[in-house]
């Protein structure tokens, strides 16, 4: 062999190594971002987290003037609005997925599923504006007086639905969040419903099952873990959503039994106050951010684990 040939190969080998290393460094950046987001907010919130200790989680008092910071009210608001959103979004998303996979005629499926996907593409600030200017007055004039007069008068659940028709509040925020997360849950459900083998469904139909029975007894059990994964994915979105909630939640550090009363959430507290906050106030908001990040991380972790299990099983068969 002439001399230049091995040198060329050496050069290629060196370039290959450099290339692989730089690609790997870029990939490790993903881990660095997640770790950095957690550590930087933890570091920024250290004064309040250490200074207040467990009181930070247990106290409902949020008083920047007195220097008291308790996370209970924003945590309560985040959890309750997300819970309301999931409660409303899951049946809605299931209905949409059912419609798109079993009921709609084939020519209608593509446009309708594209339209539902569009719901996910609309930026959250637009949801917020629409919520504040259109949906809040609608709730105040029509829905909330009706709820107060009907459900609000019942013995046990009455406390949830009684109160002045402000429009702004936990229920309104939950509904707006539900509309935002429906497309995510519906997309996962539709995808896994379509992945169920046709012969399984056809066998059930051949035995005389109605389309609904096929979905309820065959499709849903076969896709249960992915459906739960999709729901957790929606929950993760709902917990961290900021703009839509900030506009319609009312921004009040209160904890009420009634869903019609205003509240606050972790993300809306941060969005509203961060730029005016100094010292311990800022530290408390960063600590809230840390809390939010850790909670959504674990919710999304569960979601992805559930979704991965299905993918693996599909790969095995």
């Amino acid at each position: 062999m002439p001399a230049p040939a091995p040198r060329r190969a050496d050069l290629d080998a060196r370039r290959d190594r450099w290339f692989a290393h730089s690609l790997k460094a870029a990939a490790l950046l993903v881990l660095a971002v997640l770790l950095g987001a957690a550590l930087s907010t933890l570091w920024g919130g250290r004064e309040v987290l250490i200074g207040h200790g467990l009181d930070f989680l247990a106290s409902s008092q949020w008083n920047p003037v007195a220097g008291r910071y308790g996370a209970l009210a924003p945590v309560f608001g985040t959890v309750v609005t997300s819970f309301v959103a999931i409660l409303l979004a899951v049946p809605l998303a299931f209905g949409i997925a059912l419609f798109l996979t079993e009921i709609a005629p084939p020519w209608l499926r593509r446009p309708v599923s594209a339209a539902i996907e569009l719901l996910a593409a609309i930026p959250s600030i637009i949801y917020g504006m629409w919520g504040l200017f259109v949906f809040v007055p609608f709730m105040a004039e029509h829905i909330e007086p009706m709820l107060d007069a009907s459900l609000g008068q019942l013995p046990v659940i009455g406390a949830l639905f009684s109160g002045p028709p402000l429009g702004l509040g936990v229920l309104t925020a939950g509904i707006v969040l539900a509309v935002m997360i429906v497309p995510f849950i519906a997309a996962v459900m539709r995808e896994v419903f379509l992945a169920v083998p046709t012969r399984l469904k056809e066998s059930a139909r051949a035995l005389g099952a109605t389309p609904w029975e096929v979905v309820w007894h065959i499709v849903l059990p076969a896709t249960r873990s992915a459906v739960v994964g999709g729901i957790f994915l929606g929950l993760g979105r709902a917990l961290g959503e900021t703009m839509a909630v900030t506009f319609v939640l009312g921004n009040a550090y209160d904890i009420h039994a009634s869903l019609l009363m205003p509240g606050t959430s972790i993300s809306s507290s941060i969005a509203n106050e961060f730029n005016e906050a100094v010292g311990n106030h800022r530290s408390a908001l960063l600590a809230l951010g840390f809390l939010l990040f850790v909670v959504t991380f674990f919710v999304l972790l569960i979601a992805r684990l559930m979704l991965r299990r299905l993918a693996r099983r599909e790969g095995a068969t």
Partner: peptide, 16 residues
């Protein structure tokens, strides 16, 4: 982890 970052709350990334 990338899939988790995909739906992580954007407000915390702003704080970061």
């Amino acid at each position: 982890m990338n899939d988790i970052l995909l739906s992580a709350p954007s407000i915390v990334l702003g704080l970061f």
